[in-house]
Design a protein around this nucleic acid. Structure first.
Lengths: 349, 349
DNA sequence: ATGAAAGCGCTAACAA
DNA sequence: TTGTTAGCGCTTTCAT
């Protein structure tokens, strides 16, 4: 009847801990508490379904054994990993860090953990990264930007999980989108600088795709004012004070001789201001400088930086809320959330 | 003989995809390729053990189905999650971002993914966070700092995985440690400023524990020079330009009237410089300012910041290497790695 | 080089 | 309220 069975890892006494001390599993806890494994599982995940007396015994057993649930097993069994993936261009950029921070905090409160992936601003990397994180079976995914390769979109769709695209806006998101219009930003800055009396215009920008959209809208808006030929100092991907100085030096080198300068980040703007100061140029009289982001140093620089304020925490929070709604099957009123932006007039423009 | 069995998810035709489209599993790929599941597994994880012909068929089937391996299942079965946890005080601090970035890049090359956890500078949070990440069964763990609660240490030890503590040094690490001596930094800065002729000294610092160690060593070293009474402007946890300005204003408010100022971060130092400039004070003649970190803006500020350079990328890389060695059972020559530091004399001191 | 079978540690019906 | 049972999708001996 019973065919001979080889010794199994699970057998009491034959435990073969592959590492460290003995592995404490649900069953160990269950035995100690004198209940069935399922009861321990319930005690942990749905305590209300367990009698108070039982719950206490289980809790005690957990404490005694130092039991740490194995979420690989749990996730496999329930097909809910309680993991949410977030893909950002770079963690080496405070701008995204703040969004992720508020995103993570909101989700932590609901028992989710964030798995962070960094593309390094590459599109190939995004594809590979998405595949990599999907293999962890996240319950949802956060993306930066709205441009993804067809293969990436296919993969995301096939995963069948809620997706939120962020830091941009589109009428047709993969699923959800939380961000703001980069075109409107470009236009608003153009109008702002023009309103301040600028008649010549320049740009110091990284080659980030969203920055390019802002730049284009800025130039186009200026054309409507009859202004053509926007001088530009492009720098590569990463923003730094140094590159801001270099970018502005380039602009001057091109013969840019006073006017409004729109920078693609506050960091770059800080460099522009520094370089202008180093050259003894007058801000904002001769050079009016506008940053982007309103990072925490902007208001406290000397001179204080005029910039475009983006509510980064709101992007994180709204994204989390939207995903959470999907995960809880709460009906969602809006799949497109515009967090807007504000120009903060200070001393540099 | 065969008792009636209820329909199972696994049964072909009765697949109940809990979400999205049908779930592509190893078995689906195997069937399509006309091989056993185990062979597909091998084709993916140990391609050399599979005949070329077979490999091709499997590869094709994977492409055709868009199969994405389920690492929850894989990890559970093999007890290797290919996940490495990293605990940092804040992702909202570029100083740690760079370390994590190089750490992650090194590990990615070896097929590991990093699971990031943020303590927010709290110790309670560290305990909870460690528990949370351990439930994902990481293959190794990266910690910031060397101070952990007894419970945390116990838990870490019980996990039986390689552990690297970073950003500090201790002769008795939990397992491995990669960092530098904060005491030596404090002493070196004291000597440096004293050597520059400073006779009065101050501090503008966050209340980060490692910063406090530097400050203490700084003060003690100065005592040896017969100097007592180091003025200090403490700010809370997070560093920002604004807090640097405020901290310096405090210092002045306390009657600090010229001398050397050691800041716990470059960001704070940038604030100190800004505030000093705003007050028309002379740097470095009257106020000699030293930062900490040598972030990328330090060298390009006006005036350029004298600071303590820490090779953050090296911390990440060496940590990764050390863990990798453990994971590959490579004998480790050193469990304590000192990456050192360098004072970069520039214009502010 | 490949296949068969037995779990990894947990959750989820279903019964009791 | 609790226990029983059957997997979740993969890896891993062990045979072949």
């Amino acid at each position: 009847m019973t065919k001979p069975v080889p010794p199994r890892h699970g057998d009491p006494g034959v435990s073969t801990p592959r590492r460290g001390g003995r592995t404490v599993t649900l069953d160990v806890v269950a035995r100690l508490a004198g209940v069935a494994p399922a009861t321990v599982s319930r005690a942990i995940n749905q305590p209300d379904m367990v009698a108070r007396k039982t719950l206490e015994r289980v809790t005690q057993a957990i404490a005694d054994t130092g039991y740490v649930p194995n979420l690989l097993a749990g996730g496999l069994a329930s097909s809910r990993s309680h993991l949410i993936a977030a893909i950002v261009p770079s963690i080496n950029n405070l701008v995204y860090a703040e969004t992720i921070q508020s995103f993570g905090n909101r989700l932590k409160a609901c028992g989710y953990q964030v798995l962070l992936g960094e593309t390094g601003y590459g599109q190939d990397t995004e594809d590979a990264l998405v595949t990599a994180v999907l293999s962890r079976r996240p319950d949802a995914i956060f993306l930066t930007g709205i441009h993804h390769s067809p293969q990436c979109r296919r993969q995301l769709l096939a995963a069948g999980i809620p997706v939120v695209e962020t830091w941009d806006l589109t009428p047709s998101p993969l699923d959800l989108v939380v961000g703001f219009s980069h075109e409107k930003v470009g236009e608003a800055v153009a109008a702002f600088l023009h309103g301040r009396g600028c008649r010549r215009f320049g740009i110091v920008s990284s080659d980030d795709p969203r920055a390019l959209v802002r730049n284009k809208a800025y130039a186009r808006a200026l054309e409507r004012h009859g202004i053509t030929g926007v001088a530009s100092g492009l720098v590569h991907a990463v923003s730094s004070l140094e590159l801001g100085r270099k970018g502005f030096a380039d602009l001057i080198g091109q013969g840019f001789d006073g006017g409004g300068v729109f920078c693609s980040s506050d960091t770059l703007a800080q460099g522009v201001v520094t370089e202008a100061l180093a050259r003894g140029l007058r801000i904002p009289e001769d050079y009016a400088i506008v940053g982007f982001g309103d990072q925490n140093f902007a208001a406290h620089m000397l001179p204080a930086l005029t910039t475009v304020k983006i509510d980064r925490a709101a992007i994180g929070e709204e994204s989390a809320n939207a995903l959470l709604a999907r995960l809880q099957n709460t009906p969602l009123t809006e799949t497109v959330v515009d967090v807007g932006f504000t120009i903060m007039p200070r001393e540099t423009a």
